[in-house]
Each structure stands twice: as C-alpha cells, then as structure tokens.
Design a protein around this nucleic acid. Structure first.
Lengths: 361, 361
DNA sequence: TTGTAAGCGTTATCAA
DNA sequence: TTGATAACGCTTACAA
C-alpha cells in the first residue's frame, strides 16, 4: 500500500469511488463535485461509495482545473496588533461565509517582507489579495498585481497613485474633532506620536508613507488651522516603535523650552508605551498632560484615567475589505450593498472619556 | 489570448519557459524547481527566459505531485482574542521561517464549526493542523486525523484520551500561587469566572471541557486544599461570554449570603467584562473586592488599579506548536531543541500588581 | 444521462 | 546531463 510523505495511506480518489459505485469516473466526479447532471439513482450509489471509502475531495486538483483556489491572501503588519486582529476576523468571517479561506502573512511593516509575501501568495494562486501596504512609496509589487489584473484590495491604507479598491475608514473628521477639543481646552502645543519608521519623509509636505497615519495628522492640522494656530512640525514624531524608543522621544519632547501640553498617540500600541513612559516620569493624566489615542481595543475604558480615543469600526472595515475582494471575483456576497453596504463609507468617531484636561500651568 | 476566470492573462508555464529557452520541458522544470541536475549553462538560459516571461511557479501543480502544500492549517477560537493573536503570530513566524504558510480559521469555540474547519483544511490538503480544540468531549474529527496519521498539534489545550502532541503552558503552579496569595491575604471565598459555555459539566468531577480552564481551576483548588479551605463549587461560574452575562453572574454571586471577596477571571476578555461590571456596581478594587486575571495583554499594567495576573508566554507557545507540527513533517526547524527548545516546558508566572488586598470587612 | 479522453502545470520515471 | 512521457486527482469537452 503506497504511502504519502508523512506515512499516511494513499488518498481515496474519484476513481476509487467510481469503481466501488460501479459507475464511470466522470459520473462519480459529477455527483461528488455537484455539477453536471447525474441521475438520482447513480448519485446515491456514488455518495454511498464515497461515504464508505471516506472520500475527501482534493481541492488542489479541483483548483488546477477551475483556476480558483477559494482562498484569499491577507497581508497585514502584525496579527498581534489588535487592529489587524479585528480586521482579519472581519475578513475571515465574510470570506468563510462565501466558502473562502484565508492565508495570513505578517510583514512587520517591512516592505521587503511584503514583497516576498505577495510573491508567495501569487505562487499559491490565491484568488485575491487583501494587503495593508507598508509603504506608499515602494509598491511596484502591488502595481504589478493591478497591471496583471490580479484582484487586490487595500486595507486600512490607500496609495494615491495605485488604482485598487481600498477598505478604509474616514478618520479625518474624528481626528480633527479630537484636536479641536484639545484646542478648546486651551492646548496650543500638541504632539503626535507614531510608530512609523519613516523614510525621513516629514509630514508637512505630504503624502506620508502610510495614509492612515497621514490622515490622523491631517485631521489634527485641520483643527489647528481652523483655530489659527501655527503648527509646530517638530511636534510630530515617528519611530515610537517600543517602550524605550517612545520614552526617549517623550523625554526629548518634554524637555523642550516649550514642551507639548497634550499628546496624540497614533494607535493602541503607541499609547501603551506612552502610558508606560508617563508613569515612569511621574506625570499625571490629564493634570500634567492630556492624552488622546486612536483605536479602541476595549481596554482604554479601564485605564487610569479612562482614555479619550478616536474609535474605528475595525471589524466592519475588515468585512468591507473581504466584500470588495469577493465582489471583484464575481462572488455574490450576502450582506453586500445592504445595511453594512458600501454607499456610506465607514467613519471613526470620538469617544470622550477622562484623559483630556486644560493644559498644566 | 485565453483568459482565466478573473480575466487575467494566461499563466506562463514551464513549457513556455522551456520553449523560449530552447531546452526540454523537463530541463526547464528542473532548473526552475531547483531539483535534479542541470548544467550551469542551460540553467542560466532557463532562468533568463523565466525572468523575461515573468514566470511564477504554480504551487498548486507542485503540490499535486509532491503531496505537500507547504501550508499549515490553524484553527483557533477567535483571532480577535489577544491570546490567539499572539499564539498565531508565534506560529506564523516559525512556519514562515521554514517556508510554510498558514491558513487561519476561527471557531468561536463552537465544535460544529471546528468540525467543518477540519474538513475544509483536509480538503485543502494542509500538511498539518494546529488546533485549539473547543471541546474535550466531542473530538471524533480530531481522533480521525490521528487515526489516519494526519499531523495534528493541539494548541493551548490537551485532550486526555487523544494522543496528539500539544503545545501547552504549565499554568497550574502560577494559578495556585495566585490563589495562595489571596488566601494569605485572608480570602476564603474566591470565585472563578470563565467564558466557557459548558455542556453542564461542573468542575468538581473533572475533567472539564477545556483543559486550560480546568488547569486554572485545578491550581486554585490545590491552593485551597493546601490551606484546608473547603472549596465552594458554586463559586465557579461559566458563561461569562459578554458584558451583560458577566454582570448577571457577578450580581448573583455578590448577592449571596456569603459573597466572594475575591475574583479570578479566566482570561483577558473576561476580566474586562468584570472590570466593567464592578465599575457599574461602584465596587473598588481591591478595597471592596480583589481581582486576579490570566493572560497579560499589555494593558493590565495600566488599568485602575494595575491588575495582578498570571502571565503566559503565549507567543512562545505558538512557536512551539509550529515547531511540533513541522517536526512531525520531518522539517528541520531552526531554533528547535535549542534555547527555546522542548526540554523545559513553558510555564506561566504570577505578575504582582495592585489588584489584591485583604477582604473587605 | 453516461462514459471516454483530454487537459490543468507541475514533478517523477526512465531511457538515451 | 537531458528529454520524452507518465503520473497527480480533478474538471471539461465530446461522443455515445
């Protein structure tokens, strides 16, 4: 008895089933694959035989013929990050509902890794890719997908010059509102911290490497401008990748002649590092400094103090990404165009809690 | 020019490359697939041709022949849950390092969904499955995998009567220590809350449907016993699946004649719901009630008050799961057996913060 | 409706 | 070292 690599028994094939059922191979295949016409009589014969043999269709072989793998490739920065965790769940939910599975790849926001990831998924012949691009500058690999008509959907971020559908949340208004509140409280020097390790491209010129971060800053600037406050570009900082780095940045920022009186953290990971640093410094929120964050992981409500955040419908955005991908594939997606449908773009909103106060005097 | 379903251009195949390179198909295949022997001269010819045509190997076809998909199937409860997010990241890291990809499926701890997930992965012919079993009672589908020699690794939970390798963290000692501390502080009535929706099987008899939860309880009981405290089985509660449910359970618990003076939350999701409920009830931690939780998501340090938790090396456990799976496949895993190797089982440890205090009088 | 045979793009076999 | 040619397990013609 032949064995597969792992020592498993030879797989039961359509041929085996056909033989046992006493019908032709094609008939068995039709019955098992549920296509074409098969008389009810023979169908039962085949199904019974399949049952008895424990037949399991080989999707690989099926895919070779149909040209479709029923698989979506998803490339995110880091699945440990709650943003991507939630978005991915949204994707898998919608995908699974339509009979699609998901192959997941992390890039750690490294474009080189992303390029490799795209290659792998291409070779695995996923039907479509959903990627959260690490850079808006280096994207030949994505452009190539578009050029070759390979279904691609961007997640969380857009690339201006790349014509691919994107599932993005409109975050500018909420970012602006958050900043406006700070301004209303009397803040004039508001710092922005992101984990981005930019290629040195400052935010003033736009566009920034990651649109979702650019939008956060854009919202902030809009509020500043509306209040006739000259933005201090030096208060926008990147590289808050971990605790030490964030502490270093904050130390430098707070040591300035005119230190910021309020902080905006670009995401939930950054805000945690900020909380750690402020704690170390012995600074109280919001008495000594105000703090706003993006994303709502479910914990911000219980921190000391509860954090005011710009909350995004992340899960829904993941669903939207999957929907966009499946629609490109011509798959009829259940909930599409309906309630949670496209027409109205998803928007973020400000959740007011207790981390905002007037600037320390 | 023929088109694939999505309207993409016909794929470039080995045959195309061979023709352009002016060599036989087999030779081209050998050069491209990097197997067998090919003269350096022809190899270059082939590679150049491939480059010019933009050839991309079809892993599906490759898999059909080799019988290996270079893909791991991962079945978890919910990727949004930080535990599974971290574990999955550990898995993907190790897998990718060895050239393997990961197909991810969520079950929401529903066995029926899990059964279906296993079926799907079987048909996709993943080389191995890593599953976090939803139940230790219903596992015919897993038993079947074992019976047919299909590589299977359990994640986070074991099933006593199923002989499959498992990547689990030893959590009993830390759970016991946490409870012992509560006891030392004077607590006698300690409640345990889990999100499990048990099949009605109480914890007293053992084993419980999910071993990782059973171990938490087991550790707690051990401490109780060591202190000669008669455990009150009614203080162990399941079904804390969301905020309202958790609030309901707590309300009932706290309304007892002899209410618990300390709470142990089974995981990070439960503890958040507990925090919400206690906040609603106006109860202060630890003045009014003590609270311990399992898992450390990175937020417990910043809650009000900072939470004492039993922290687990989740990411490392995910890595271990992948390692076990790959080793079963005969893949040489880089970091195996070394520092992070098997010999010493991963263990949880207690992180002391400020949510424990003497019982309210 | 059924069966035969060809094809999907690789790898594996076996002479040459 | 090469190159035909046969698998791999399925779907898709094309006949019967």
């Amino acid at each position: 008895m032949a064995d597969t690599p792992a020592g498993r028994q030879r797989e039961v094939t359509v041929t085996d089933v056909a033989r046992l059922a006493g019908v032709g191979k094609a008939t068995a295949a039709r019955a098992l694959g549920e296509y074409g016409h098969v008389s009810e009589e023979k169908r039962q014969l085949v199904l019974d035989a399949a049952e008895r043999l424990g037949y399991r269709p080989n999707e690989l072989a099926r895919s070779m013929n149909t040209g479709r793998t029923q698989t979506l490739g998803v490339i995110v920065g880091d699945i440990e990050n709650s943003y991507f965790g939630n978005a991915t769940r949204g994707i898998t939910d919608v995908a699974r509902h339509s009979g699609y599975d998901v192959i997941l790849l992390n890039t750690d926001e490294n474009v080189t890794v992303e390029i490799e990831a795209v290659r792998v998924l291409t070779e695995k012949r996923v039907d479509a890719m959903i990627v959260s691009p690490a850079s808006a500058y280096t994207f030949d690999h994505l452009q190539h997908l578009v050029d070759t008509n390979y279904p691609l959907v961007l997640l969380d971020r857009t690339i201006a010059t790349l014509s691919a559908p994107a599932a993005v949340i409109d975050i500018v208004p909420a970012a602006k509102e958050a900043t406006a509140r700070l301004i209303a409280l009397g803040h004039r020097r508001i710092a922005f911290l992101s984990a981005l390790t930019t290629d040195g491209v400052s935010f003033s010129g736009f566009p920034l490497g990651v649109s979702s971060v650019a939008e956060r800053i854009s919202g902030m600037l809009a509020a500043l401008e509306e209040a006739d406050i000259q933005p201090d570009h030096d208060l926008v900082r990147f590289g808050a990748v971990d605790r030490p780095a964030t502490a270093r940045i904050l130390l430098e920022l707070l040591g300035r002649d005119a230190p910021p009186t309020a902080l905006i953290a670009s995401d939930s990971t950054v805000v945690r590092d900020v909380l750690a640093a402020l704690k170390d410094f012995g600074l109280r929120i919001p008495a000594d400094i105000s703090l706003v964050s993006f994303d709502d992981t479910g914990w911000e409500e219980f921190t000391d103090p509860p954090l005011t955040v710009v909350s995004q419908p992340v899960h829904a955005n993941g669903e939207e990404a999957a929907r966009l991908a499946l629609e490109t594939l011509g798959v009829n997606v259940p909930g599409a165009g309906s309630s949670a449908g496209h027409s109205d773009r998803l928007t973020a909103h400000l959740v007011k809690r207790s981390s905002l106060g007037p600037p320390a005097t």
